Simulated assay, not measured.
Amino acid sequence: MRVIIRTVSELCITLGTLIVLFVVYVLFWTGVRADAAMSDQIDQLHRQWSRGSVRPTDGPGERTVSATRPEPYRHGEAFAIMYIPRFGFTWNKPVLEGTGRDVLAKGLAHYRGTAKLGGTGNFAVAGHRRTYGDPLEDFPELRPGDPVVLTDGTTWFTYRIDKGPYKTVPTDVEVIDPVPRKSGYTRPGRYLTLTTCDPEWGHSHRLIVWAHLDSTQPVEAGEPKALRR
């Protein structure tokens, strides 16, 4: 009997230790790795954008330096940086193509098949609310009128939230339609949809906000008004 009790006790201690290590991994280590990955993605984008490109001008033999033209989105690669002032003026996250687990571990994820940044249609982006750096932890604080700003290295895009946070179920894929039926939009336009999980530590539901493209300006003009303190 003593042997059985000792064995069961040791198994419980081992199991408890494994549970604690798993919690530490989920709550701490994934966040450390994700923060490093997101910072690295942003640094890579800035280096890519700063290199620029050289193209000929109309005059023979003349050459001028111009910003690098954005390339087609490639799965798992960052192509833009998002800023949400509601989350603080230091908050910024990379946006990558695709919504796989490996992509979401490195930043925000663009739903393949939805519109491109600034394009006609619905530019839809997802992100973790908890774990992997908690990029959208404060999602419920978003309000209509809040700006969501993105840049692709050549242009600033300022979207304005019109509706949300709206709670729905994961199977409600209509939220990322070109004209989302529940958003209040009735005609084609240039829209943004942000999605994250709900509740905070679960994934039984989704929180959604919808926004429209409010303005654009070249990066040479400086930061848009929404990012000025």
Results as ranks from 00 to 15, higher is better:
R2M: 08
V3T: 14
T7A: 15
S9N: 10
S9V: 10
S9W: 12
L11F: 12
L18D: 00
V20I: 14
V20F: 13
V20H: 01
L21E: 09
Y25W: 15
L27N: 14
L27D: 15
W29A: 00
G31H: 04
V32C: 09
A34V: 01
A36Y: 08
M38W: 10
S39Y: 02
D40G: 13
D43H: 11
R47E: 03
W49Y: 10
S50W: 04
G59S: 14
G61A: 04
V65Q: 15
V65A: 15
P70L: 13
P72Y: 06
G76T: 02
A80M: 09
F87R: 01
F87P: 04
W91H: 15
L96E: 08
L96G: 09
E97N: 10
T99N: 10
T99A: 05
G100W: 13
K106S: 04
H110G: 02
R112N: 09
K116Q: 11
G118R: 00
G118V: 03
G119M: 03
G121R: 03
A126Y: 04
G127N: 08
P140I: 06
L142C: 03
L142N: 00
P144L: 11
G145N: 14
D146V: 02
T151G: 05
T154E: 04
W156S: 03
T158P: 01
Y159F: 15
R160K: 12
G164I: 06
Y166T: 02
P170M: 09
D172E: 11
V173I: 12
E174R: 14
V175Q: 08
V175R: 08
P180I: 08
R181V: 13
K182V: 01
K182R: 14
G184R: 08
R187K: 13
P188N: 10
T196F: 01
T196N: 03
D198M: 08
G202V: 12
H203C: 01
H205V: 04
L207A: 00
H212C: 03
L213S: 02
S215G: 13
T216F: 11
V219R: 09
G222Y: 04
R228A: 06
R228M: 06
